[in-house]
Each structure stands twice: as C-alpha cells, then as structure tokens.
Simulated scan of single mutants.
Amino acid sequence: MWEQSQIKRTLSAPANLARVQALIREAPELHRTALADQICTTWGFFDARGRPQRAGCLKALRALERAGRITLPPACSSPGRGGQGRRLGVAVPAPQGVGREVTELEGLALVRVDTAEHRALWNELMAREHPRGMGPLVGAQLRYLVGSAQGWLGALGFAASALQLAARDAWIGWDPALRERHRHRVVGLNRFLLRPGVSCRNLASWTLGRALRRLGADFEACHGYRPWLVETFIEPPHTGVSLRASNWRFVGETGGRGRQDRGHAAAETRKAIYLYELEPDWRARLGWVRHRHGATHRWNPPRVWMRSSGLNTSSGVRPWGTSD
C-alpha cells in the first residue's frame, strides 16, 4: 500500500536539511522546479504512479524558507497563476428549458474535467457562481461538470481532506501518526454547485450519487490509488438530512478554524462534518481489527450528538448553495 510521503517532516530532519542547504549552495543554477525534482529523486518522493511529488516538495521547500531554514533561488513565476487559474473570461450561458424533474433533462451527464477547455469552464462557473470561488484546491484533485442538452447545470470538485478535524479523527479513531500515513485515503468534496436558477428535483442527489460511484475508479486512474472515505461540510442554516438519507454519516462539527489556522487566529462558521464510506472494509484496511500486545483491538464508534447550533434536521440539504 502506498503511504503518503511526509515531505516536510523528512526534509526538516537536521541531516536532511543540511543536505538540502548544501544542494542549494553547490548548484545555484537550479531553479526551484529542478531543485524539487532532484530532491524527489534523492529522497524517493514519488506518488503511487511513480511520478515525482513536485508540488508537495515545492510546498515543503517554501515552508522551510518562510521558517528561515533555507534560502531558495528566485521564483520564475508567482505560484497559483498557472493552468489552474485559467478562465473563459465570459460568463457561462445559462441553461435553457430545464424542467422541474431530473427525468425531464436530456443528455444528463457527469463529465470529468480533463481538458484545458473544461478546466476553464469549471473555473469560470466556480469563480462567478460559487460562494467560495474556484479555489485553489489542494492536494490530489478531481473535478466534474454536470452537462445536459439544456446546458451546463453545475460542477463539483474533490481535493485533499482537512489536515485535522477533532470530530472526524475521533470517529475514525486514528492517532496522529496513523492519520499522517493514511489521510490521503480521505478526500474532500470541496466544491458542489448547482447553478442559480436551476431548480430541478433530485438533481443534487443524482449528481452526488453518480460522482461517488465513479470517484474510486477515476481517482485511481488519475492518482494511482483509491480513496476510502469522502468528507464534506454543511454550514448553517443548511442541513444534512438529504446527505444522511444517502448514507452519509454526521460525525460532529468543525472547530471554526480554517485549514492553515495553526495559531487559532482565524474564525470561521462552525460546520457540520459528514463522511461517506466508499470502501465498506476501510476499517480493516486501516488495520483496526488486529492483535496488539496479544489482545484483539475492537473499534467502538463514539456516539455523536447534534449540537444546539441552529441546524435544522427536518429540512433539505443545500451544500454550499446547491438545491435538491
């Protein structure tokens, strides 16, 4: 089983950091990408398909530079301005003739984004119509468009899961070391958009169901491994009753902090956390049912209760502004 490389932790070790500093000093002609490629080769930072983990290595190197531990060569271009940020430049035409029922849609299809044209279309839809914009998303990613003969109806995107979530981590039951080894097996449903004005019964359920059925195979084709769990967040006043009806599990709430808020400085709205099990035997794959110190370890799921936070459990779910 491929385990996610802990690049920053590896490079932060004193002996390894000294080697990185020596490499920068002895080969000043290397630009950052070439430096990252060489480091990947030296330390064996490759993904499940044998490709160098260049993006993760560059991110770790920039973090080490911010911490004052290394000095990188000048950047050739600003991060985040590459293909991921390209847009159409004009609004995507609104769909026409959308009926009230999903069965009335013609040519309904979930389209995986794997061309520059589709990526620009996805970016334009999210930038203009999603409350959180187009990103950037982080980690291993998959994007989809929802198309039909009536026009483009929506889009959704999967990316890396949250670094830490107390409620999620307690429900899974892993310790920090096991979480770092297997967190890539949890992916986040980070964007879900049904376009404003599209009010089609069961379209959200159709979209989520179709995406989750495809996600394992598509993720493996793109990234070389299959995820086990999917996480997503519901922000009040939206609720998760439709998710629970579709076998998503409510496991608790976020702590109201962002992904990179290590100093408890930023404040965000507390959100309900939902998990979907892609692989029924994920606990066995994680290694929970096994002998430890001569005794069999049994996993007992913690009981999770809804907080009195204003979440209404009797109405439909609208993840980030979608409708069902």
Rank of each mutant, 00 (worst) to 15 (best):
R66L: 11
R66Y: 02
G68P: 10
G68H: 11
I70N: 02
L72F: 05
L72I: 00
P73N: 08
P73Q: 07
P74N: 03
A75Q: 13
S77D: 03
S78Y: 11
G80S: 02
G80Y: 09
G80I: 00
G80N: 02
R81T: 07
R81W: 04
R81F: 06
G82A: 09
G83D: 02
G83H: 04
G83Q: 04
G83S: 10
Q84F: 10
Q84T: 04
G85E: 03
G85C: 09
G85Y: 04
R86E: 09
R86C: 02
R86A: 06
L88G: 00
G89Q: 07
V90A: 02
V90L: 01
A91Y: 05
A91N: 03
A91S: 14
A91Q: 10
V92S: 00
V92T: 00
A94L: 12
A94K: 01
P95F: 12
P95A: 08
Q96D: 05
Q96M: 09
V98W: 07
G99E: 07
G99N: 03
G99K: 05
E101N: 05
E101D: 11
T103G: 10
T103A: 12
T103F: 13
T103L: 13
T103K: 12
E104K: 05
E104F: 04
L105W: 13
L105C: 11
G107C: 12
A109C: 11
A109S: 12
L110A: 05
L110F: 14
L110H: 06
